[in-house]
Design a protein around this nucleic acid. Structure first.
Lengths: 205, 205
DNA sequence: GTCTATATCGGGATAGAC
DNA sequence: GTCTATCCCGATATAGAC
């Protein structure tokens, strides 16, 4: 999209980086063009030069967020690992990734709920289709490795257990960990094993 | 707070009802005082007469949302049912309640992530403390009804499995159910049993 | 308590010089 | 491509009549 090669970051890149930060933190309505310009250390009207409107700039960032959060799952799911290893890897790597980008999930869910219609298009562009998740699980059910279960429930269960603790962090950390971030990070580390066991215990044939 | 008794709804009540609707749908920044006034069928400046600023009005609604979503759990948890019945009831009633108020969770999580500091106070006022969740589970672990597990993981697991499918609905419904709302509602109904089994299978001693 | 009118400000977007 | 200046609108909030 933009040459980053061996150069300084281009203006467009600076804008996109800044917009990601501010939009993800504050949402569409909570963000002003001025904030983005300041963050990028450029002039406000340059934003309009590169992206004609705030909406278009936001759309670009939203697509980025989706592409950032989804494809990793697809790679793991389509690998050749045995199913229980797949689940273990999926949980571990996904929790890791979400910990490092903890604001993105809440950002996505807010905008998903506010503007659901714009999402279909973004998902298609990102190459997401249900089969990616469903097919590998159906195989295992047929093989008898895991008990018969609607694979959609299983997918939602796995995602729930990984994503929820991240978006609920500001609350859960205060309620259960006296607002100690290190304690909560350890808790999330523990969860990798805990969630894996939790899932496997409930689907083992 | 306001007399609702045998009267028409007071102006203050009309405002609060309207504000709940609009804020929950659009968030703090996405909502204008004009929208609330229209929804309440009153004049814009009356909003400022009753609640001096938009912020204060929003704070009132946020507290309401918390009090709405949390105490029900506490009642079930502190009941005398055996633990597996408790879990079954908790899942069923909580999913039901969230289905009927599906915009509230996303609203709460967005604001939780944007303004974490204001939450401590709200939680204290709502009478939330960790023991409510933890204590009943610790009892069961001691009695040997359920296997040893950090009760905080268990609490987070239960909440994850109930709440996530609601806030992810606009996305999941499109990906897995061709955007058919009835199909997704049936899916959520199924989940009550599915999630209960899922949890119990993983913690039975 | 409720309304109309208005003050004040900030935000998105454009024009036009360089 | 980048900047300054400006337009225009909508939003919060207040003043003041009734």
């Amino acid at each position: 999209m933009v040459k980053t090669s061996d150069q300084f970051p281009s203006t467009e890149d600076k804008i996109l980086d800044a917009a990601k930060k501010v939009f993800v933190r504050n949402g569409l309505d909570g963000t002003t063009m001025q904030q983005i310009a300041d963050e990028a250390r450029i002039n406000k009207s340059l934003l309009h030069y590169y992206f004609r409107t705030k909406q278009k700039l936001f759309g670009t960032v939203l697509k980025y967020a989706f592409k950032f959060v989804v494809p990793q799952m697809r790679d793991i799911l389509s690998s050749n690992d045995p199913i229980f290893v797949k689940i273990e890897r999926l949980v571990a790597e996904y929790v890791d990734m979400l910990m490092k980008n903890s604001l993105i999930p809440a950002f996505i869910f807010h905008e998903i709920n506010r503007n659901p219609d714009s999402i279909v298009q973004i998902m298609k562009e990102a190459g997401i289709n249900p089969g990616i998740f469903i097919d590998p699980l159906m195989d295992e059910i047929r093989k008898g490795t895991i008990r018969p279960i609607d694979p959609r429930h299983l997918v939602i269960n796995i995602l729930s257990l990984c994503v929820f603790p991240i978006i609920a962090r500001p609350l859960a950390q205060r309620v259960f960990f006296e607002n100690d971030p290190h304690a909560y990070s350890r808790f999330l580390e523990e969860r990798k094993k805990e969630v894996t066991n939790f899932i496997i215990a409930s689907i083992k044939a």
